[in-house]
């Protein structure tokens, strides 16, 4: 029963960290507010106007980082299951960049006509972009059997999309650019309540749906032939994995921009923490872990050089990329042994 203790410990730890970071997200910032005032503001009691507004700002930001971080990690885990490879993720495969491109195009073309995109439209554009790149990756994966090559292709697609995005941003009206720049680097700062109202149901539904897929996903880990033999409807499972991971990662890109490495690093950390790869544990663990990771990174991004803010993607890269490197190195060892 040592295993069960381990799982329990892991989940307790994750939930504790999540709560601690949520609290820290409310309490810490470039303007210091008494915890009592924060609580009062959250309860809707009368506080002074500035404090209330700051708490409101922090609330949506903290909520968004937790939800989107979790979504990213789960999306990464789904892709890893799909490609049977732990280095798959929405960022390395270029899916995030694809979404970024379509969102930038949509934003700029609408803004130039003086129309602001609402949350749903923003999300629609991101989903379209991620599905397009996903489709491209699927076509490539039929020809390129080796995962490492596929990842290189994904990175290249990512570069192409980013380059076009940069072009679009460069030629956009000056007034639009400021917003777009921050967004295209990845940041939780611009999230509005309207955004949260769209992302929360999408992410929650995606999470529950992913959790319900954990049984066929576990069979899929043994490979196609065995999965089929155990009664998994492969085509439907694959379609669901692709759709779900795109739905989740598009959500992140639409509201926070592309955020790197969370999709690979968090599932890997969770596997190490749980010492297991069963989807039934991994899906909730990835969600919690992703939320913790992004809350932590966002906290760092906005406090370390306060009042100047870093792009959260830079922070996730600083912490996420070494994890990925560590994973690749230790994996190589395991393969040779």
């Amino acid at each position: 029963m040592e295993r069960k203790t381990r799982y329990a410990f892991a989940f307790v730890l994750l939930i504790f960290l999540l709560l601690a970071l949520l609290a820290a997200g409310f309490a810490i910032g470039s303007v210091s507010i008494e915890p009592g005032t924060v609580l009062a503001a959250l309860r809707g009691r009368e506080t002074d106007d500035v404090a209330a507004r700051i708490v409101d700002l922090r609330a949506r930001r903290v909520l968004a980082s937790a939800l989107l971080g979790g979504a990213l990690a789960v999306s990464g885990f789904l892709l890893q299951t799909f490609f049977a490879n732990p280095i798959a993720g929405p960022f390395v495969l270029g899916v995030s960049s694809g979404a970024k491109l379509t969102v930038a195009l949509a934003m700029v073309s609408f803004l130039s006509r003086g129309v602001l995109l609402n949350s749903a439209e923003l999300y629609g554009a991101a989903f379209l972009g991620s599905m397009l790149v996903m489709l491209l990756i699927l076509i490539l994966s039929a020809r390129v059997r080796q995962m490492s090559l596929l990842v290189v292709c994904g990175v290249m697609i990512g570069y192409i999309c980013s380059a076009i995005t940069d072009l679009v941003v460069t030629f956009a009206d000056d007034s639009n650019i400021v917003n777009l720049r921050a967004w295209s680097l990845g940041s939780f700062s611009g999230v509005s309540w309207a955004n949260v109202r769209i992302m929360a149901p999408i992410v929650c539904a995606g999470l529950i749906w992913s959790f319900l897929l954990s049984k066929p996903m576990s069979a899929y880990q043994l490979g196609e032939a065995y999965a089929r033999n155990m009664g998994v409807r492969l085509r439907s499972l694959r379609l669901q994995l692709i759709l779900l991971s795109s739905v989740l990662s598009a959500c992140v890109v639409a509201f926070a921009g592309p955020i790197s490495f969370v999709g690979i690093a968090v599932p890997h950390l969770m596997r190490s923490l749980l010492r297991a790869s069963k989807p039934i544990l991994m899906v909730p663990a990835c969600f919690l872990g992703g939320a913790v990771f992004c809350l932590g990174c966002d906290l760092i991004a906005r406090t370390i050089f306060a009042p100047t803010e870093l792009a959260v993607s830079s922070v996730t890269a600083v912490f996420g990329a070494p994890v990925v490197i560590w994973m690749l190195v230790s994996r190589r060892k395991g393969v040779d042994a």
Partner: peptide, 28 residues
């Protein structure tokens, strides 16, 4: 099959237990 199976962090008991898949409920 003759396919090489690659799994991550699964014990022998886990792998054998996967054979029960068709008999288990919605969450496996």
């Amino acid at each position: 099959t003759t396919d090489r199976v690659r799994v991550d962090r699964l014990t022998v008991r886990d792998v054998v237990g996967m054979g029960r898949y068709p008999y288990t409920g919605a969450l496996g």
